[in-house]
Design a protein around this nucleic acid. Structure first.
Length: 878
RNA sequence: GCCGGGGUGGCGGAAUGGUAGACGCUACGGACUUAAAAUCCGUUGGGGGAAACCUCGUGUGGGUUCGAGUCCCAUCCCCGGCACCA
């Protein structure tokens, strides 16, 4: 055996090939003529947070592997990267460290870029997008103005979500369980005049087009459907007795109108003050102001018991002319439907509860099934107590009653959505200025296109940036003082900035033509690349970013700028990376674990007093160190826990390819993975074994040529050739489906086969072919090592420039197979059988197996099932 | 409560209705070494057996089928999302 003189040394290999890829322009994206095979591989762009850890890199590694694979297949590949660079983290850092948001941001970008480079993750940096640059955000302003032209931007005064920590308003999507999505602070209600985007105009398209996305996770689509919340019903009026006013309600069950025994208005409903009787005035006003004080969270408490107050007013049920009392209650929401309901306790659980508590009348209008013990009956059944609807089932009754309403002019069929318009004003500094001007004479005037961009002034003083409850820009006359474009008089710029989700709603389009100074992007270029073939990112954007981006794409499509109506053809939500985390020192008291330090314990929501058993069930370990006991547990890698494996040090000590394989092999990519020392060891062993295999054979590999006649192969050569092509097929399919873990497993298997082969055989043409293909298949995962070894075999060009080999389908058909012989469905023997063996022969061979013979002894064969190439099942009785 | 996804060795996880546990990790045994590391070889779901082999086994209970981790019905549990939206 040739002595191993070379050693696998990632530190030497990796920088060398990284430089080489940059020199040959490996991932420079080039448009081609129509019909060119293209692959737009996109990872969600991040906030530039500086140093990166393995948790940040998982999706980038996946994207890089896929992009490299598509390159090998000869696709035109677009694999870009950029920075979601506006937003609060930059401002917070500025406040904390006294650096300007811009300096902080660009410093972080530089650091992050280095980490990406170290991992061998390659992007077309000529298309880099940084949202906080005027070259980018001027097109935010441009799109905003286009939306304004089309009536999709409006200003409205209403109760909005105010995040007291961020000192800014938030959109509905950004309030989760009554708290700001980023700050976690309880959101307050404030009445403010703000800018909105009319996403609701697109509600129906956003809903129905989900069906065009088979390569999206069902989970994400379900979440979007629920968020859009379409419901069909009717909207109709109830006359208030003794008033001009009518109360309009929305109901999905207009068929139950004969059971409407009272009405409920949201406390904020505009008619409340008008219809409340003097006797009830005091109680109603008290209730309304109490409701205003209540936070969203209080209103949504688990044990929410129904509360409400009678207004003293009555309305007339249009179906039967009955007088019914009008109440107010906070279980009716002002923002949905009309903010008022007809209450039908017989068919609605919430109304039943309310009626029961306040002693209101209950009439059933749907016949519950016999023996019905429950309260409200919400299922289908024949209508009762409903005059002309009696006997009809729900669907029929709805149709009939809606037709009746329309005929009488009371109301009509109506579709309602839960989706609300998108509030995009933010009272913060580090964002895109809203390109609007307020003029005392002309009102609101858009900034003319030729004056774009409205540049964000550079503020360096921390006090200028600090949030004060209104936009910091409002303190800078040099920014807001301007001329009215219409009348030329003195006017004032809008001083709010845009929600940063505006920035990220179309960045993927900018990548297709990132440096265009004249328009957001050239439609021809966008049409070549769009839609994104594979988008990879975190599930946390299931609604927010992914819904907004779909909206923007549809809008830009409507403007005629892009053909695609959906931005992301395939979506993949990757699982998180966890790291073993020292939660802190603990003491055991009576078998229970008590933490001596609370900081990390509370962050991880671990209770005090766990039993050891419970802790272990939760994946934790107690470790002894210097006589002390520490509580360790895998937790999502994060800066604040300090449990992230940092890219720089890791690559320096171990190597980028090892990190990449560790990430991709540890678990299916959609699952969370725990980064472990053992996993890293396994990757090292694997890559080292690859290196050794090629290294030991290097001299022979250089001598042997590959002239190969597949049909003439026999024995071990033939077996290796077939294994090679089966692996080639599997690895290709697995990468396409992002099943990297099984692709790597297949490569490990093939490597084992190569070792087995070399135990008995010399380097041969088949073997050399196998090694060459092997390196091509390894390249997406461990590109540096693959490139190095590839150059040993083929000096000419990069492994990524060589075409991905074709699968020889003839080689997928084995020439013999292992026949599984079952007797009555249980495996009793196996035999190697030539592929071309006839059924007769197979049956004969099966019966010669000793163990099968024994099981057939004295039994009567009832039936035989033969699955060619696989299995024979002999069914016996007796 | 509703919606989505799961439940397979000590662990991560493989399995177009056809050999359950690929591949890897861990652990154990052995080789090499002065020694250790690394590396290599072997074993590693439970039970029985000297072995051949038998038997049990994919949350639980039923069913369909020659054959079920995979399909159907019921049920329990876990994770994620939504939750007074009329």
């Amino acid at each position: 055996m040739v002595p191993t003189t070379d050693k696998y040394n990632p530190h030497e290999l990796e920088p060398k090939w990284q430089k080489y890829w940059d020199e040959i322009g490996l991932l420079e994206a080039k448009e081609g003529p129509g019909g060119t095979k293209k692959a737009y591989i996109l990872v969600m762009f991040p906030y530039p947070s500086g140093d990166l850890h393995m948790g940040h890199l998982k999706n980038y590694t996946m994207g890089d592997a896929l992009a490299r694979f598509r390159t090998q297949q000869g696709y035109h590949v677009l694999h870009p990267f950029g920075w979601d660079a506006f937003g609060l983290p930059a401002e917070n850092a500025a406040l904390k460290f006294g650096v300007s948001p811009a300096d902080w941001t660009f410093g972080n970008i530089q650091q992050s870029k280095e980490s990406l480079g170290l991992m061998g993750i390659r992007y077309d940096w000529s298309r880099e997008v940084t949202t906080c640059t005027p070259e980018y955000y001027r097109w935010n302003q441009w799109i905003f103005l286009k939306m304004y032209e089309r009536g999709l931007v409006y200003r409205k005064k209403s109760l909005v979500n105010w995040d007291p920590v961020e000192q800014s308003v938030l959109a509905n999507e950004q309030v989760i369980d009554g708290r700001g999505w980023r700050s976690g602070a309880l959101v307050e209600k404030r009445e403010l005049e703000q800018w909105y985007l009319k996403i609701t105009d697109y509600a129906e398209r956003l809903l129905t087009d989900l069906e065009k996305l088979p390569r999206w996770p069902e989970k994400v689509k379900a979440m979007q459907r629920a968020w859009i919340g379409k419901s069909q019903g009717a909207e109709f009026d109830f006359q208030v007795k003794g008033h001009e006013a009518k109360i309009r309600v929305f109901s999905t069950r207009p068929d139950t109108i004969f059971g409407a025994t009272f009405m409920v208005l949201a406390p904020e409903h505009e008619l409340v003050a008008q219809i409340t009787t003097p006797q009830q005035k005091e109680a109603v006003e008290a209730y309304v102001s109490a409701a205003k004080m209540k936070s969203e969270v209080e209103r949504q408490r688990e044990d929410r018991e129904k509360t409400g107050v009678f207004t003293g007013a009555y309305a007339l049920n249009p179906a039967n002319g009955k007088e019914i009392p009008v109440w107010i209650a906070d279980y009716v929401l002002s923002g949905y439907g009309t903010g008022a309901i007809m209450a039908v306790p017989g068919q609605d659980e919430r109304d039943w509860e309310f009626a029961e508590k306040f002693g209101l009348e209950i009439i059933r209008t749907v016949q519950p099934p016999e023996g019905w013990q429950g309260k409200a009956y919400t299922e289908d059944g024949p209508a009762i107590n409903s005059d002309f609807l009696d006997g009809l089932y729900m669907e029929e009754a709805k149709k009939k009653v809606i037709a009746w309403m329309e005929e009488k002019g009371i109301g009509e069929g109506k579709v309602n959505y839960r989706l609300r318009d998108w509030l995009i004003s933010r009272q913060r500094y580090w964002g895109t200025p809203i390109p609007m001007i307020h003029c005392e004479r002309c009102g609101i005037v858009p900034v003319p296109y030729e004056q774009l961009p409205v540049e964000l002034p550079t503020l360096r003083d921390v006090d200028d940036i600090r949030p004060k409850g209104k936009s910091p820009l409002a303190a800078h006359p040099e920014f807001y003082e301007c001329e009215c474009p219409k009348c030329g008089g003195k006017a004032r710029r809008d001083t709010d900035t845009m929600d940063t989700f505006f920035d990220s709603s179309w960045y993927f389009l900018r990548y297709t033509d990132a440096q265009n100074p004249n328009q957001p992007f050239d439609p021809a270029k966008a049409n070549f690349w769009m839609p994104v073939d594979q988008y990879i990112g975190g599930i946390e954007h299931a609604i927010l970013h992914l819904l907004y981006s779909r909206f923007f794409t549809k809008f830009l499509h409507d403007l005629g700028l892009v053909e695609a109506e959906e931005p992301f053809e395939g979506l993949f939500t990757q699982g998180m990376v966890m790291g073993w985390t020292n939660v802190g020192q603990v003491e055991l008291r009576e078998g229970r674990i008590h933490f001596l330090d609370d900081a990390r314990r509370s962050k991880l929501e671990l209770p005090q007093g766990l039993t050891v058993e419970e802790a272990e069930k939760g994946g934790a370990e107690l470790r002894q160190e210097g006589g002390q006991t520490y509580f360790w547990k895998p937790a999502v890698m994060s800066k604040s826990l300090g449990n992230g494996v940092m890219v720089g040090p890791f690559v320096k000590e171990q190597g980028a390819d090892i990190a990449r394989v560790t990430i991709l092999f540890a678990a299916p990519p959609e699952n969370e993975m725990v980064w472990t020392e053992e996993g890293v060891q396994g990757s090292w062993r694997f890559l080292n074994r690859v290196f050794r295999r090629v290294s030991e054979d290097r001299a022979e590999l250089e001598r042997v040529s590959e002239g190969l006649e597949p049909a003439a192969l026999s024995g071990a050569d033939r077996a290796l050739y077939q294994k090679l092509h089966r692996t080639l097929k599997k690895v290709g399919e697995d990468i396409e489906n992002l099943r990297f873990n099984t692709a790597v497993a297949a490569l490990m298997e093939l490597l084992n086969a190569l070792y087995d082969y070399r135990k008995e055989r010399a380097v041969s043409p088949v073997y050399r072919t196998a090694i060459r293909y092997y390196l091509q298949m390894l390249a997406p995962f461990a590109p540096h090592l693959a490139e190095e070894l590839w150059h040993w075999l083929d000096q000419g060009r990069s492994v990524f420039q060589a075409r991905w080999p074709e699968v020889d389908t003839a080689a997928l058909v084995a020439d013999s197979f292992e026949l599984v012989v079952q007797v009555s469905g249980k495996v009793r023997g196996k035999a190697t059988v030539p592929a071309e063996a006839s059924e007769e022969e197979v049956k004969r061979i099966a019966r010669e197996i000793e163990n099968v013979k024994a099981w057939l002894e004295g039994k009567q064969v009832v039936k035989e099932i033969y699955v060619p190439g696989k299995l024979l099942n002999i069914v016996v009785k007796g």
